[in-house]
Structures are given as structure tokens and as C-alpha cells.
Design a protein around this nucleic acid. Structure first.
Lengths: 167, 167
DNA sequence: ACTAAATTTCAATAATTTTTGAAAGTTTAA
DNA sequence: TTAAACTTTCAAAAATTATTGAAATTTAGT
């Protein structure tokens, strides 16, 4: 496989993977493009490479910046803005895990806490409801705090964790 | 909050969460409904509770069965089929993690392996591409095998893992 | 084998999400 | 202050995804 083919395949795979971590295709593809680029890219260059419109590029780059994954690079003597993404995969994983927790997991945990706290009126349906939503709450809470712990280790957390975990 | 309100809130929250674990709204809602039900439900009952069509119910129940999350219950003397879901949250988490790995993560790892194996032609772009996709491949591979380990412990894996991990 | 009950399929439709492109807004430098 | 360069916004259009409902198929009892 040649570089160009591999590049296309990577960008497209990463793009369709977007849904897995909760972002849209264009957003994931822009990130992928920046991730393998040797230097920051301008809006123009991103549009050109991915064949997407200016508006689309602008909106999705902004979202990536909101996520903390992409940063503006000011190049001296250049009017236009250039963008680059976090290049360290561990750090990237940390940012993504943290943001997903904040945006999606924690709100759900809050809801589970609420609904599992209804008063037990003695009916079988209510008992089952409370029991099951509590169990779910506990699981989600534990999983999220585990993620939080992993995510707050600055260095090499995944590997370290595995070592600890499986002797 | 009363039972009925809590139930609705739970089903709707769980439904919109579907995207997080890669299934659609109706599918997640059916699973949620079964999860808090004291007994298996028929297609008819699911349609009624969730206000969705017969076809929709049929297709999504089938998918849940494919995932291994829902099972047909044959009730003696009854013609129609009844369905129930795995009630143990740990087991549920195991099944979901396993399926997601198989369906989504492993294919991506395979692609990453392929694209990171192109031959180094000496250009900076190719060097960067190989380095970055390799790093991503390593991370994904490690994360997936970690998930696999967790998932193959039958009992109480999350809690145990956390204990081991954080002393 | 027949029939009625139940389930599945799938083309048409609806709902949702993404993308476009052009107008409006902003910034910089002369 | 002006104007060109660049960015953002957002209503409309396109693309994608989910849902319906009725016909076709399957199943189980007689």
C-alpha cells in the first residue's frame, strides 16, 4: 500500500469511527488529518484535502477546539489561522475520556441517582425499578470514577494500569 | 418523583444514551423497558408501552437477541413469544464490551495495523504517518486487550479491578 | 393439509443530522 | 477609515438513519 492510499484509508476509517467517541464524521476526519500532518494546516488546506465546505470546516474546527483536542497556531507574518492537534496519543485519550465523562456519562449518572431514589410504595414493579436502576447507577459510577483515575495519571497510564491489574 | 414519571425518565434517558454504546434509540428503550420489568414482555406489550410499531419492535428485538442481551422466553401454553433481558448489570456490561470490541474496535485495529505498515519512503510525511498510526495502533490494541481481560472475568470484575489498580 | 395467530420483511415515508454556500461579521494593515 | 483577507453564522438542501404498516412468511394447533 502506498502513502496516499494509506492516508485516505486512515482518514476515512477514523472518520467513520467518530460515532464511537461521539463526534461527527467531518470532525473526526479533520482531527485525523491534523494528526498525521507534519505541520499546522489552514482552513483552506483542510477544505482542499477533505473536500468539504468552508462553513463545515469552520464549525468542526471550532468544536475540536472546544473539546481541547485542537489548538490555533499563530504563524508569524501570516494572516490566516493554522490548526494543529494534540500529537501524543496518551494525552489525546485522556482528553477524550475526560470530555466524554463530563458531557455524557455524568449527566446519566445524575439521572440514575434521581430515578433510583423514588420512594418504595411496596409494589413489585417499584421494587424492581429501584433495585435495577440502583445497580446501574453503581456500575456507571464505579466505571466513571475508574476512568477518572486513569485519566488523571499523566504518564503512560494504560500500560501501567494493565501491569498492576494483571500482576 | 413517582414511579411512572421515573420509569419514563429512565427509559428516555437510556434511549438517548443508546448512541454511546452504538445502538439506536428504540433498541436501547426496549432493553431499558425489559430491564425494569418484573416479567418477560410480548411484542404487543412492548409496542404498547413504547408506542412504536410492530415492525420496529420486531427488528430491534431481533438485534438485541443478536447482541446476546435479550432472550426469548417460551411461556408454556402461550403461543406468542415473550422477551427478557439480562438482569445482572455486570454480565450486561461484559456482553456489551465484548460485542463492541468484536464489531467495532478490532476492525479498526486491523486497519491501523495495515496502514502503519506501509514502507518508509524517507519523506517526512510518510515518517510522520507511520509513527502516528503506529502509536494509535498500540494504544487501541492495549486498550482493547485490557477490555478483553476485564470482560473475561466472570465475577465482579469492575470492583476487583479498581481495588487492584489503585491499591 | 388447513387455518388462524404471530412474526418478519421491506418499500415508502418521516425524522434527524450533516453539509453547503452566501451573507454578515471581524480583523489587520496601510 | 477603508478595504481586502479571512472567519463565522445560519437558513436551505442534501444525506443519512429510523420508523411505519401492510403484505409475505412462518408457526402451531386441529
Amino acid at each position: 500500500m502506498e502513502y496516499l492510499e494509506a492516508k485516505e484509508k486512515f482518514i476515512s476509517t477514523w472518520g467513520s469511527l467518530g460515532t464511537l467517541w461521539g463526534i461527527n464524521k467531518a470532525m473526526a476526519q479533520i482531527q485525523a488529518l491534523l494528526f498525521i500532518s507534519t505541520k499546522p494546516l489552514s482552513t483552506e488546506q483542510i477544505m482542499e484535502e477533505l473536500k468539504i465546505s468552508r462553513g463545515n470546516t469552520s464549525m468542526n474546527v471550532r468544536q475540536l477546539i472546544d473539546w481541547g483536542i485542537v489548538t490555533k497556531e499563530l504563524i508569524p507574518g501570516e494572516r490566516r489561522e493554522y490548526f494543529s492537534t494534540e500529537k501524543d496519543v496518551q494525552e489525546l485519550a485522556r482528553i477524550i475520556a475526560k470530555e466524554r465523562s463530563r458531557r455524557e456519562i455524568r449527566p446519566v449518572i445524575k439521572t440514575l441517582e434521581e430515578v433510583s431514589s423514588i420512594k418504595d410504595d411496596g409494589t413489585a414493579a417499584t421494587k424492581e425499578f429501584i433495585q435495577q436502576t440502583k445497580a446501574l447507577h453503581d456500575l456507571a459510577d464505579t466505571a466513571d470514577s475508574m476512568l477518572g483515575k486513569l485519566v488523571n495519571q499523566k504518564q503512560n497510564w494504560l500500560t501501567k494500569s494493565i501491569l498492576k491489574m494483571f500482576k
